[in-house]
């Protein structure tokens, strides 16, 4: 394992939305088998950074290597190939409302492999077992609770056994017990499969439970990048403020707030991910 290249390498990443710089000289490395948590307040640039790692945005400057490949230098075909080794569990769940849970999970295997349909069926049901949704394959997503949708999205994200798994706010909107079961799942996946897992979250309990290392983003800059203990014991006042914010009022989540104003449902979308995200 130690001979493998870093799973993720970001060197001096800068990015802008219009004139506004949203990521400033971000550098980080994620090791194979590591659970790496990106945290920071709303608007600090977490989702933007994640989208860069997924190759969905082009940086103003800087280098991003995923599993040893420099993603901005890849052809569309090579990028597609690389994406089959990356799993993504999106914040919104990202299941197709028109397909059964089982078909949702099997989709990447049907799209990207030539596996026999029997094998695909077994792999799909194996993943449902792993996320504790055994027997739910024939249900439609609309019949699942929020926590179940999250777990189904996980099952789909890992159906190709990715080397690298990205999770955007895995515990957002879940009650503490369900959130904690998602944390356990993340730990089990890393331990069993040796996956590198990158988690974007502002849930501190979850971060302290699962992280090997934490990257704290603040207004687009890496404020700190260190182990859980080092971050916890950091004398830096801004880090302590961030850590203590849990006791204060919940901060506003612009994503959720905008969705509320637009009257959008949180859980489902109707359009294939391949179309929306080029995945």
């Amino acid at each position: 394992m130690s001979t493998d290249p870093p799973s993720v390498e970001v060197i001096n990443l800068n990015t802008h939305y219009g004139d506004r710089q949203v990521l400033k000289n971000v550098s980080l490395t994620v090791k194979p088998g590591e659970i790496f948590v990106i945290m920071g307040g709303s608007g600090s640039g977490k989702t933007t950074l994640l989208n860069h790692l997924l190759g969905l945005l082009r940086p103003s400057s800087g280098t991003i290597r995923i599993l040893g490949r420099e993603i901005n230098a890849l052809s569309a075909l090579d990028m597609q190939d690389l994406r089959t080794r990356m799993g993504v569990a999106f914040q919104s769940g990202a299941l197709f409302s028109s397909m059964s849970v089982g078909d949702n999970i099997a989709l990447p295997l049907r799209e990207h492999t030539n596996l026999d349909e029997t094998t695909i069926g077994i792999v799909t049901r194996l993943k449902l077992e792993v996320v504790s949704l055994a027997g739910f394959e024939h249900l439609m997503p609309s019949e699942l609770s929020g926590g179940m949708i999250k777990r189904a999205a996980f099952a789909r994200a890992i159906v190709m056994d990715p080397r690298l798994l990205f999770c955007d706010e895995p515990s957002a909107g879940l009650d503490p017990v369900v959130a904690s079961s998602i944390d356990d799942l993340i730990l089990r996946l890393r331990d069993a499969m040796g996956m590198s897992i990158i988690v974007v979250t502002h849930d501190l309990d979850s971060t302290f439970k699962i992280a090997d290392r934490i990257c704290v983003l603040d207004q687009g800059e890496v404020l700190a990048l260190d182990t859980v203990d080092a971050i916890r014991n950091s004398p830096n006042e801004r880090i302590q403020n961030l850590l203590n914010r849990r006791t204060e009022e919940a901060e506003i989540d612009p994503d959720a707030y905008l969705r509320r104003l637009l009257g959008e449902k949180e859980k489902l979308r109707d359009e294939p991910a391949s179309r929306r995200n080029g995945l």
């Binding site: 492999t113 596996l115 029997t118 094998t119 077994i122 792999v123 194996l126 993943k127 159906v159 056994d161």
Partner: peptide, 11 residues
């Protein structure tokens, strides 16, 4: 061994 390998053993 990945899940497809495990699936072959299961079958």
């Amino acid at each position: 061994i990945d899940s497809s390998g495990i699936a072959s053993l299961v079958e």
